[in-house]
Computed example of a mutant assay.
Amino acid sequence: MQFRTQIPISKSNNPIDYNSKILSIGSCFAENMAEKFDYFKFQNEINPFGIIFNSVSIEKLFKRVCKEELFEEKDVFFHNERWHSFEVHSDLSNSDRQELLETLNKAVTETHKKLKEATHIIITLGTSWIYRNMESDEVVANCHKVPQKQFSKELLSVDEIQKSIQNTIESIEALSPNINFIFTISPVRHIKDGFVENQLSKSHLFTALHQVLKTHNSKLKTHNYFPSYEIMMDELRDYRFYNEDMLHPNQIAIDYIWKLFSENYISQDSFSLMLEVDEIQKSLLHRSFNPESDQHQKFLAKLQQKISILENKISHIKF
């Protein structure tokens, strides 16, 4: 007997392997999946401009990266003793203006290079709600705790989201025509916007994204959709799969969603290597009651041998 519904997932025609180079962009759920890629030692770059929730801000950043348009002094501002940019997350903010500009421009040039080399890009959309700076009339990626009165809060229309996703794809494909796209919608509910408003926001993302995929997938190239939101809402329909805030997936949920992702989007040839990496990672976490014992020294020697063999086998893997 089946006691839950299972979401059907189509296998990727261009699965990820240890030769793949992955760029992950988007909401905090993108970070959850990137941590898994990092754990298993895949070649993955995550959110070089910090967490970005909305499609318009993602579009603006990729246009900048693809054209290598560097940040200038006019693109940053001073608030609460730190310099910020409305285009990026506050994690990149700095007390020194020049250091911030150097950090941002290094991110632009390095992301441009990585995007040209990337085989796969994973874009995780979080919300349709955006904040618009009323002075510049620009959508911001982060408000940086600037007073609320300086922004208008808006819900992006389906057409606006569709256009921004389409523009993002076109910008990236102009630079990296053979890249494989994987889109997903974050399973994190943005309840601070309101319960009804969160559902409305997600529905706009679904409608816009699937309209774009329908258009693109009628051509020769297929862009994949991974149903992380559907898995969380349907297969894991229980609050025991949430963190204490009852909004974010807990580690059990993340592990389960990763399992389904890896079964369908990672090459089967990579599974044996993933098992080797997993065994080493668990061994590295092992803490001995007697670190000086012969038994533990033999354990460490054997572990180092396993690491050396794997690092020699796959040059980019480092522990």
Rank of each mutant, 00 (worst) to 15 (best):
I7T: 13
S12Q: 10
P15F: 06
S20I: 07
S27A: 11
E31W: 00
K36R: 15
Y39V: 10
N44L: 05
I46V: 15
V56Q: 14
V56T: 14
F62W: 11
V65W: 04
C66H: 01
F71Q: 04
N80Y: 10
R82K: 14
S85D: 06
V88P: 02
S93T: 02
N94E: 14
D96Y: 12
Q98F: 04
L104H: 07
E110F: 08
T119S: 15
H120M: 07
T127L: 13
C143S: 13
D159A: 14
E160R: 14
E160V: 09
I165V: 15
E170Y: 10
S171M: 08
L175R: 01
F181I: 08
I185V: 11
P187E: 02
H190F: 11
V196A: 14
K202F: 05
L205E: 03
T207P: 00
H210L: 08
K214M: 10
T222V: 13
F226Q: 04
L236V: 03
R237F: 11
F241T: 03
Q251L: 07
I254W: 01
D255W: 00
W258C: 02
S262N: 10
S267C: 13
V277R: 10
D278P: 01
I280Q: 03
S283W: 03
P291N: 08
S293H: 07
Q304R: 13
L310T: 02
I314F: 08
